[in-house]
């Protein structure tokens, strides 16, 4: 990148030939630039660097907020991972979050791509259609939780009413441990509007000539989808996959709303079937005052997300090679 000394040079820069020297570049640029980003740097130090270091320190301590933190070394980490008497639900919450991610992310991507193809194919009324598909995205988590608690109601909810028309017996969606994850994943797919828009932008980016050439060469819709649309959308899919997995591993608000009861207890659903990792973490930090364990959990999550993301990047690189 051009450093101030280079930018000061009156000669034209090689990448943009024939330009006039820009007035006022150089040291002044540096000073003003740093002044402008100074608030963001303060933010970075106060709300990211310091808290991250502090959290790392707390994760090596035993601390319930009432006394001062006492150093326990790696005990929080080893207890979380191996002591299933002290932390009986740790692995359960890992399993719930992984299951949710594995089910919800592909379901969301497929729904998003399907909707994007449809919006793209329709000329008339596609704006209204798009608006409709997007409504779930701008709906508050609390509202989504309330709505779906009602839609999934075992006796009077819309889902069971509709299934009843087809002779399917009513299901107790949110109280049957086996159905909790699919039910939550379905809500996620219902909210796939953002991914749909990004897919739509990707579809519009495919050159028309490419499709037309394929049609002339005799490719049917299925072949066109497999040979042209899918490969051209690969970067989009990868982006949505990475961000989707990261988001799914952190799912919290919706499960919290859905599984919180009148007496303010949060259980994580029937037999902890909805106890996602971050919900578990939240409970440790803000219900049980186990700050050390909560911070340790957050770093385990961070490391896990970093590994998953790195693996995804590596996988794609191999594919490309």
């Amino acid at each position: 990148m051009a450093n101030p000394v280079q930018a000061d040079r009156p000669a034209a820069t090689p990448d943009r030939p024939g330009r006039r020297p820009r007035p006022g570049f150089g040291r002044r640029d540096s000073i003003v630039g740093w002044l402008l980003i100074a608030p963001a740097l303060v933010y970075f130090v106060a709300f990211l660097l310091y808290p991250a270091v502090a959290a790392l320190y707390y994760s090596f301590t035993d601390w319930n907020l009432r006394s001062s933190p006492s150093w326990v070394g790696l005990a929080n980490y080893t207890d979380l991972l191996f002591d299933d008497v002290k932390y009986p639900h740790f692995w359960k919450s890992v399993q719930v979050s992984l299951m949710y991610t594995v089910v919800a992310v592909p379901l969301t991507l497929v729904a998003a791509l399907g909707q994007a193809l449809l919006v793209n194919a329709i000329r008339k009324g596609s704006n209204l259609f798009r608006l409709l598909l997007f409504l779930p995205v701008v709906t508050a988590e609390a509202a989504v939780g309330a709505i779906w608690r009602w839609l999934y109601d075992p006796q009077y909810g819309l889902i069971n009413v509709i299934l009843g028309w087809f002779g399917v017996p009513p299901q107790n969606w949110l109280n049957n441990p086996d159905l909790v994850i699919p039910a939550l994943a379905f809500i996620a797919a219902w909210q796939c509007g953002i991914s749909m828009i990004i897919y739509l932008a990707g579809l519009k980016g495919i050159p028309l000539s490419l499709r037309e050439a394929a049609i002339i060469d005799g490719a049917g819709p299925v072949q066109r989808f497999r040979k042209i649309i899918m490969p051209m959308l690969r970067p989009t899919t990868f982006y949505l996959l990475v961000t989707g997995v990261i988001a799914a591993l952190q799912v919290f608000g919706l499960v919290y709303v859905i599984f919180s009861a009148a007496n303010k207890s949060v259980t994580g659903g029937p037999e902890q079937a909805g106890l996602t990792y971050v919900l578990h973490l939240y409970l440790f930090a803000f219900r049980y005052d186990a700050m050390g364990a909560a911070c340790a959990m957050s770093f385990i999550l961070l490391v896990f997300i970093m590994i998953i993301t790195a693996l995804q990047f590596k996988f794609v690189k191999q594919e490309a090679a």
């Binding site: 991250a52 909560a294 770093f299 999550l301």
Partner: peptide
């Protein structure tokens, strides 16, 4: 960065 990491501090 996952917000949970810095939430407590």
């Amino acid at each position: 960065l996952p917000p949970q990491v810095v939430a407590v501090p």
